[in-house]
């Protein structure tokens, strides 16, 4: 009675295991994934700490819906752009839904990113050692706003067109660099076909690339430094209470040592607090 092979019998599973081991040996994905997923985070992380991840997911949604829109959109100022938007909205199967999601997704992303920033600010989560996480985040906020600005023009309807003319004029009015920025955005001195192509490529190549890069940096910092603990987590409150107790005890000792303070109800504060605990 000899026992031989103790691995799985199923050749498919055997093959899969062998493949994973092969890849892991060379890339370390298994170890890496495990390290990423099973790293410890402080206990009591809150629901407010889900907003960054949500921003990331909404960005992913914008990327997917945006790619689908790009399959039909034509950046043509002679009516082509406008017609292609009409076509997507009225003809393409689910086109109205994809466009609607992309349009609303923009507003949702701005709101989510803003709320995320507010939570980081209120928690003081940008303080040592997370200053650079904040700086990359600030870049992400500006880039997200820029996405909204450049995307608005692509529909090429009156409202978007004139709003964008005004917005670009504002950039162009800045001292020194302004005129150059204006020319770069417009692709020349005037609004025209080249402007639309330029906005299109900025909107779907330049800024998404920059956002993906900064999300990568942002995540690197977050994983490296660890997600911060709520400043009012149970653990923190316990520590603060202990510190407070210690301080009071010390004050009491001091009060006892002072002559003339015999009637001071020395043990009162701590005992009263202990009773309510």
């Amino acid at each position: 009675m000899t026992t031989k092979d103790i691995g799985p019998k199923n050749p498919v599973q055997k093959g899969a295991d062998a493949t994973i081991d092969f890849v892991d040996e060379r890339s370390g994905v298994k170890t890496g994934t495990r390290w990423f997923l099973f790293r410890n985070i402080p206990e009591g992380t809150s629901w407010f700490q889900t907003l960054g991840f949500t921003a990331m997911v909404v960005f992913g949604m914008q990327a997917i819906t945006g790619i689908i829109l790009a399959m039909y959109y034509v950046p043509d100022t002679q009516g082509g752009a406008y017609k292609s938007i009409e076509y997507i909205t009225n003809e393409v199967t689910w086109g109205w839904l994809v466009r609607g999601m992309h349009k609303w997704g923009a507003s949702v992303m701005i709101i989510v990113v803003f709320l995320h920033m507010a939570r980081v600010f209120i928690w003081g989560a940008y303080k040592y050692p997370r200053e650079l996480t904040w700086v990359t985040g600030a870049m992400l906020l500006l880039l997200t706003m820029f996405m909204g600005l450049t995307g608005y023009l692509l529909v090429w309807d009156q409202k978007a067109y004139w709003a964008t003319v005004v917005a670009v004029n504002i950039f162009a009015s800045a001292p020194i660099l302004g005129p150059y920025i204006g020319d770069i955005l417009r692709a020349g001195p005037e609004f025209g076909p080249a402007t639309l192509s330029r906005f299109y490529s900025i909107h779907m190549l330049v800024i998404p690339g920059a956002i993906a890069t900064f999300i990568g940096l942002h995540l690197y910092f977050i994983v490296r430094l660890g997600i911060s603990e709520p400043p009012w987590s149970k653990r923190r409150l316990r520590i603060e209470r202990d510190e407070e107790d210690a301080r009071r005890a010390a004050a009491r000792e001091k009060a006892k040592a002072l002559p003339g303070s015999v009637n001071y109800p020395a043990s009162w504060p701590v005992e009263a607090e202990e009773a309510t605990r």
Binding site: I85, T89, L97, G100, V155, Q158, Y161
Partner: peptide, 12 residues
């Protein structure tokens, strides 16, 4: 996206 649909305004 379903309830408040994206519209197409006046052409430029």
């Amino acid at each position: 996206a379903i309830t408040v649909r994206a519209e197409v305004g006046e052409p430029v």
